[in-house]
Design a protein around this nucleic acid. Structure first.
Length: 643
DNA sequence: CGAGCCTAGCTTTTT
DNA sequence: GCTAGGCTCG
């Protein structure tokens, strides 16, 4: 039973333009949909899901791959509203979460213990730091040797793009070329550490699941005959691994619909390559290509600006966005003197909008990097304007959360040395060295760890250790519900928290929140996986009505979203493009696309703010230019805003 | 080897 | 504002 104009079926033609309709109702076989910004991409996917089910396809045979789980949930939700509950039976998630599910079920066939834990950013850096310290003593002490974080960037880029470490270093990190061999060594040691500790990082979820599908032919056949219709959103942001995973999953049927926009490719730092979308027709011969060029989101004055930003970009699928919403206010461009002035203008614009009947949830302030909004956040707090912040540092990355999660991690995977070290270092008198020694001992033999053998000198330390071990055994074995286990852990952690953090009540609240989050999960493993793969956002402090906040977001986290009013702050050189992109023309082009993504989020009002000065702690107040990406935009595209 | 205290230096973007 | 790293002392 479906809803629709005639009461028996959705009237597809009435809700879509001819191109969207062609995509949504395409017959079997590979299809590439080039969907410009605001061209109804989501709508098309939603209708595609509905149409497939209407054709009698079993919802369980459809796999929807998206960039975030939120995006998948929203699409399936809309599809459910459109037709009926069958749409909610479609499996939707990220590449990483699909990889995780496959490995949880089948990893033993490639020799991976299914109780593996997923490392988050911090774990990865810790492990690489260990690998780094493991080098011939003197090398890691050198100031000029890359830091763990840089090493991770190099290693991960190599994995994601399938390019040798040697070439990555040569191309992008030529100043480290003397150390190429050592970097490779760190990479190998890091692999060893992960294997020994039964840990998988984000990249492993992809590489190992691809390996699983490659090596286990029977499984590959089983999986690809189960999911017979693949829908891949944001295809321009897939990397080689993800493209490979799609190819594996499509074995035998090639029913892949990839949707994306090469002009919005903004994840090259993790190996994404918009060439994937260019090469799609080569990988899937006979692919039908459909372009969606009518924009339903923004007014023509906004498109005038965004088209000028992107049209100088080289290569890609040519497309020209147009809209029928010819009229609307001209985008605003203002150059406040200072960052403080910029924040005051933002506040004033928000107040004005509220006065004229606007709603806070329709306003977003967007910026290149998480920390660009610090000053503004303070100003908004002073003015009493509630906000939710997306992107930047995460709640689960703060130390106290990581500490508590470490207890759960070791109970789930006792071989996780990284987490053991974290826990052991909390014992007074135990530092890095001792912690590693004890952790090795426990990880080798946790079932009957002989605490006496651990040679701790002080009695107090031995007591602390056996207490810690006690908690470990309890969390591991007792048939308590997850929230109770978390409570037990928090109780044990409390003295440490109290002794080490000045703002401990606030952090305790975070921990309570963590415990209540755990309530919705059946097991520790699933809870931990979710926390690593889809971490909750920060800045949602307070419980008040979510719909009554403005949104603060990084450009990246704004992808796929839209607002009536979009305010871009720090539209200056040194912020966008980021100085990190200066040494490579391709990186600069990516920054351009990033600004394009940000500006195309606006439906009716677009405001560009570019302070004239920036405070530098060394140089004092210095002048900064408007971002180079506005150079080619004609001045009469803007309304000038008097400060 | 651990801890405490100080300073410098600093931050892209995310699964 | 915050933490990674350096330095010194016990």
């Amino acid at each position: 039973m479906t809803f629709g104009n005639n009461g028996d079926s959705v009237d597809y033609a009435a809700h879509m333009n001819p191109d969207q309709l062609a995509a949504a109702t395409a017959q079997d076989g590979p299809v590439l949909v080039i969907a410009g910004a605001g061209s109804g991409k989501t709508r098309t996917i939603v209708f595609r899901v509905a149409w497939l089910i209407d054709q009698g396809i079993d919802p369980h045979a459809i796999l929807l791959l998206t960039f975030t789980r939120k995006a998948a949930a929203e699409m399936l939700n809309r599809a459910t509203l459109l037709m009926d509950g069958r749409a909610s039976m479609v499996f939707g998630g990220t590449f990483h979460s699909v990889g995780y599910s496959l490995l949880r079920k089948y990893s033993s066939s490639i020799g991976i213990d299914r109780s593996f834990s997923i490392m988050d950013q911090r774990d990865i850096i810790d492990a690489i730091e260990q690998a780094r310290k493991n080098l011939t003593p003197s090398i890691s002490d050198l100031k000029s040797f890359p830091k763990a974080k840089t090493l991770y960037e190099i290693l991960s880029r190599s994995v994601g793009s399938s390019i040798q470490i040697e070439n990555i270093v040569e191309d992008r990190y030529p100043h480290f070329m003397d150390y190429t061999d050592d970097i490779v060594t760190v990479g190998n040691t890091y692999q060893d550490i992960k294997r020994q500790n039964n840990l998988l990082d984000y990249d492993d979820l992809l590489t190992q699941s691809v390996r699983l599908l490659e090596e286990d032919e029977e499984l590959r056949f089983h999986i690809s005959s189960n999911w017979r219709y693949l829908l891949v959103d944001e295809y321009q942001d897939t990397n080689r691994l993800q493209a490979g995973m799609v190819r594996m999953l499509a074995t035998g049927h090639n029913n892949v619909m990839a949707v994306g926009d090469d002009s919005q490719s903004i994840y090259s730092f993790r190996g994404a390559n918009f060439k994937n979308i260019i090469e799609f027709p080569d990988i899937f011969p006979g692919a039908k290509i459909i372009k969606l060029e009518e924009n339903y989101r923004s007014t023509q004055p906004i498109l005038n600006v965004t088209n000028q930003i992107i049209e100088v970009a080289s290569s890609g699928y040519r497309k020209k966005l147009f809209t029928r919403q010819a009229t609307g206010p001209l985008p605003l461009l203002a150059r406040p003197f200072s960052e403080q002035d910029q924040s005051r203008i933002v506040t004033r614009l928000i107040m004005d909008s509220i006065k004229s009947g606007g709603s806070l949830k329709d306003i977003a302030v967007l910026f290149r990097a998480g920390f660009h909004s610090f000053e503004l956040e303070a100003e908004l707090a002073r003015s009493g304007i509630p906000f939710a912040k997306y992107g930047g540092f995460k709640f689960v990355e703060s130390q106290h959360i990581k500490d508590v999660l470490a207890y759960l991690k070791v109970s789930n995977n006792p071989r996780d040395l990284i987490s053991w070290v974290r826990l052991l270092k909390m014992i007074p008198g135990v530092g890095e060295k001792t912690a590693i020694r004890i952790a090795r001992n426990i990880a080798d033999d946790y079932s009957s760890a002989n605490l006496e053998q651990l040679q701790l000198k002080a009695k107090k330390q031995r007591e602390s250790l056996s207490e810690l071990f006690d908690i470990f055994l309890k969390v591991r074995n007792e048939t308590l519900a997850l929230p109770e286990k978390i409570e037990m852990v928090i109780k044990h952690y409390l003295p440490y928290l109290q002794a080490n953090f000045d703002n401990y009540p606030k952090r305790l609240k975070d921990l309570e929140q963590l415990a209540s989050m755990g309530a919705t999960y059946p097991s520790i493993a699933e809870f931990l996986a979710d926390v690593a793969l889809e971490p909750p956002e920060t800045g949602l402090q307070g419980e008040s009505d979510f719909s009554q906040r403005i949104t603060l977001s990084t450009f990246h986290s704004a992808k796929g979203l839209e607002w009536e009013t979009v305010i871009i702050i720090w539209a200056t050189e040194g912020k966008i493009p980021s100085p990190m992109a200066f040494n490579s023309p391709e990186d600069i082009e990516e920054e351009r696309r990033l600004l394009y993504v940000a500006t195309t989020r606006a439906k009716r009002n677009l405001v560009i703010l570019a302070p004239q000065t920036v405070y530098d702690r060394r140089l004092g107040t210095i002048h900064v230019d408007l971002s180079r990406f506005f150079e080619q935009v004609s001045f009469d595209s803007f309304q000038r805003y008097m400060v």
